[in-house]
Design a protein around this nucleic acid. Structure first.
Lengths: 236, 236
DNA sequence: TCAAAAGTGTTCCTGTTACACCCATGT
DNA sequence: ACATGGGTGTAACAGGAACACTTTTGA
């Protein structure tokens, strides 16, 4: 969609008071990362709007695809942010000014918005992020080293971080962050990073295997000393 | 708000595509109950809309107060229902026809709505439910004996039931369903009803006391055989 | 004094924790 | 051979489940 169309036809195409914010989480170099977009001199979560004739889930999926290039990425509902004075005005005004574009207070996206936030676990290596109307750049940021962010976006990210810690204790979902085939040491390392604490190797491995969620594949050769770990993948 | 104003001024007052649905849960005669409203020949969840200048939480609270008469009732977010063709038209058309009221397809509440559902645990004895614009009656229905309901409302109720079962294992929130002072046997009975299974008395009592959430009060006289149970209340 | 209700104690079992042991492999 | 990494085993412990014991009280 062209910017022109987005500005003028927005209210006809989208639900005018609902937005979607995505906390897209990746893992690289033993760090948890979060995909952010640069708008003006601050950063924002990727997001989008819901077309009047599409479901919320479809809107999330397509926003996710648009931003990461991934077709069937994982995502889960995070929470509703519904403050009465929640609006994007300050975010975009800055951008318009800098671009020398006409600014109008009655642009539809200056409405008050209720946002539905979702978080998504992706394999960074498979993503091809792209920029869109207002954002000039994207970046994967360390969870512990977030840049200046617009509005309440930083607190949304932190909500996601807390939620992730809770969820991985009950559910197997961290594999989304890794390649389709991975080793237990890799998974172990990842969990330690997410929980930010040491986990007993033995216990971790037994717990994972006992879940029945993964299947063991042949060992592969590797170049470091020590024995070769098995490869695993999620069962079909 | 008068019906006239609601029909005509709605789009100016409320966010035009967001609604709230409440699963208000009570407990009476050893049964879990749910508050429903009669619209036409079916039943619906109490709900409402969000004023443009109020937060989602405030809207939920005031809808809850309006429907139950309770000032500070418990409530928790349940889930988003965001199907693309989710609309109330069929619900209200029926009502308008029966009342001999003019029907217009372009009434604002015939829009497609995304609904935010919340569930609330209340003490039925303290409630004073009231009817509003479209609903002619209210009723507390057994969870296992729900009437014909509009749209996806029955599945929202069932989502709440499942969610309640999960939540009470981790959190102390069932006391909202009882009087401010209650006995362990009462709480025990309640949990058995919610989980629909027998719970060992001994284990239950120890778990509840170990939570540190309740404080013991003096025993009171009662007229049935057996010893008098202690009273408990939530710690301040 | 008997039966029902309520509170507490005891035993068993499962699953978590911490740590030890052994095997594989590159240097 | 040895250091490193990876897989599995074991003993100690905590918390849950099942059941038994005791006291209180109205009939």
């Amino acid at each position: 969609m062209e910017l022109e169309e987005f500005l003028e036809k927005g209210p006809e195409i989208f639900l005018p008071n609902l937005s979607i914010d995505l906390v897209i989480i990746g893992y690289e170099h033993k760090r948890l990362k979060c995909l952010l977009l640069k708008i003006g001199d601050r950063w924002a979560l990727p997001g989008g709007y819901i077309k009047k004739d599409e479901s919320v889930e479809d809107a999330v999926q397509s926003t996710l695809t648009q931003r990461t290039g991934l077709r069937n990425a994982h995502f889960t509902f995070l929470s509703v942010f519904g403050d009465h004075n929640r609006q994007f005005k300050s975010v975009f005004k800055d951008y318009f000014d800098k671009q020398g574009m006409e600014w109008r207070d009655d642009y539809w996206f200056n409405n008050r918005f209720v946002t539905l936030s979702y978080f998504s676990l992706v394999n960074i290596a498979n993503t091809h992020p792209s920029v869109s109307h207002f954002d000039e750049a994207f970046g994967w940021f360390d969870f512990d080293d977030l840049p200046d962010m617009w509005m309440d976006h930083k607190s949304i990210v932190n909500t996601a971080r807390q939620r992730l810690i809770q969820d991985i204790q009950k559910e197997q979902l961290t594999h989304h962050l890794l390649d389709a085939e991975f080793t237990m040491p890799e998974l172990h390392q990842l969990h330690q990073v997410i929980l930010n604490e040491d986990i007993d190797r033995s216990r971790f491995q037994k717990k994972m295997l006992a879940s029945g969620f993964y299947e063991r594949l042949p060992k592969v050769q590797k170049s470091t000393p020590g024995s070769n770990p098995y490869q695993y993948r999620v069962k079909v």
